[in-house]
């Protein structure tokens, strides 16, 4: 019996992340904003670790930022990535401050550098889930 190849994991649109994925489907990148102190944060949390406020909204951000750090994955932890190794995972520091873990598209692994300017690029995985990724940005 042959087995169907296992695809890359599609993230669960959990209640906490639902607004994030709804925005991504519409081509917008959003982060949480504390209603109490205005601090921006990502990934979403139940409360603000700056002022301990419980209320938060979601706010559009520019999608522009720079590579804060990155790694290059060689070991395969999930068969969906077996054909991709070595591939990079990046942390993008957005212009507005929050950091988001993602991938850089259209950039060879050995050209990635800390400080590289990037901008968001959306990748549709399924009708429900669109994933924000990033690409190099010309300054």
């Amino acid at each position: 019996m042959s087995e169907t190849p296992i695809a890359k994991p599609v993230p669960e649109a959990s209640p906490a992340l639902a607004p994030f994925f709804a925005a991504a489907r519409a081509g917008r990148l959003v982060v949480q904003r504390c209603a109490g102190c205005g601090a921006l944060r990502f990934p979403p949390r139940e409360l603000c670790s700056r002022c301990l406020g419980l209320e938060a909204t979601w706010q559009d951000v520019s999608g522009r930022g720079e590579i804060f750090s990155y790694n290059v994955m060689h070991q395969v932890y999930h068969p969906g990535f077996a054909a991709d190794v070595p591939y990079a995972v990046v942390i993008v520091k957005l212009e507005e401050g929050p950091k988001i873990t993602s991938n850089l598209v259209g950039c060879p692994v050995d050209e990635i550098a800390v400080g590289m300017p990037v901008e968001v690029a959306f990748e549709q995985l399924s009708p429900e889930v669109t994933l924000p990724k990033f690409r190099r940005r010309r300054c």
């Binding site: 296992i6 993230p11 790694n71 994955m73 591939y87 873990t101 995985l125």
Partner: peptide, 18 residues
């Protein structure tokens, strides 16, 4: 591979080493 449900997994980031 049901463990791979979060955002990090979607980007291929797994484990403490990463």
């Amino acid at each position: 591979y049901a463990f791979a449900r979060g955002l990090d997994a979607a980007y291929g980031q797994f484990g403490i080493n990463a």
